[in-house]
Design a protein around this nucleic acid. Structure first.
Lengths: 151, 151
DNA sequence: GCTTGACTCTGTAGTCACTACAGGGTGTCA
DNA sequence: TGACACCCTGTAGTGACTACAGAGTCAAGC
């Protein structure tokens, strides 16, 4: 199948497929006479794996490491286990952090009735205070992103 | 005060201060004879505001919008309120999403005892399945990042 | 054979919020 | 005069894509 069909089947954009190939996640497929990429089912399956991992918010580096495990089924799977464990830790940390943000935002919201001037607004006045202990401090190694989309 | 002192006081790196100036978040300070930036207390206060907003995971665009509200204290503060409300929604969506990921990761972890080969590993086998309904679908406009740090 | 249009190719640049560097200038102290 | 800390501008790198320009390929219809 050509790249467009793989894209439609998998829900991954054509540009992203080429990007994954450049990044070494998808092996280079054979080429047709006209230099078009020709994918096989094995590519589609590997892509399922990658998509599944990305849906779990893993980085491409983490996925690369898991793919190495998958490519060596005779090796012990401790590395894969450790990676999932660590990633779970990151997700939990991020949830805790966002929960703290949520609490502060709810507090902020309550400070304004919504029909005064900006000068009297409790939200703006509160934000003008130096950062409290809600800060994102301690992010080191969390690797689970913030509140904004990446696409 | 010079840029280094403002950086030390605020905990924001020198390069980031210059970046905020380029981005129009911090007004251009006056310059000394030697072309050094000379900051006043008003700059430090505005920086507190920005830092506070960043700690709440707002984008620079959102912060810019809030700064406009702050710079016009005579205007009504509805825009600021709406922005906080929308941002809170994003944070809540992201928490819900990460909670789903967490549940799936915990399920994955249970599938492997951790002392077999990669070929038998329940984690790797599960990841090889196409993405279920855990996908990040519906991200549109969430703008609260994933599970990885941005610095 | 020719045209149209959908598809594909490579390569480059943009996104966000910084961060890191190169190559130079300034200020202060001994 | 030299050493050193600090500052300046400008450029490029990060991750995971996304978007585009300019060119080539392929099948269908005339």
């Amino acid at each position: 199948m050509k790249i467009g069909e793989l894209a439609r089947r998998s829900g991954v954009k054509v540009e992203t497929l080429r990007y994954y190939e450049r990044e070494g996640l998808l092996p280079e497929p054979e080429r047709s006479d006209g230099n078009y990429r020709v994918y096989r089912d094995a590519h589609a399956e590997r892509l399922d794996f990658i998509r599944h991992c990305r849906a779990l918010d893993m980085t491409l580096d983490e996925i690369r490491a898991l793919l190495v495990c998958q490519d060596h089924p005779e090796h012990p799977c401790e590395d894969a286990d450790a990676l999932i464990e660590a990633h779970l830790g990151h997700v939990e940390q991020r949830i805790a952090q966002l929960s703290r943000l949520k609490a502060e935002l709810e507090g902020l919201r309550q400070r304004c009735a919504g029909h005064g001037t900006a000068g009297e607004c409790g939200i703006l006045n509160e934000l003008a205070q130096p950062v409290g202990d809600v800060s994102r401090g301690g992010d080191a190694g969390v690797h689970v992103g913030g509140a904004h989309p990446r696409r």
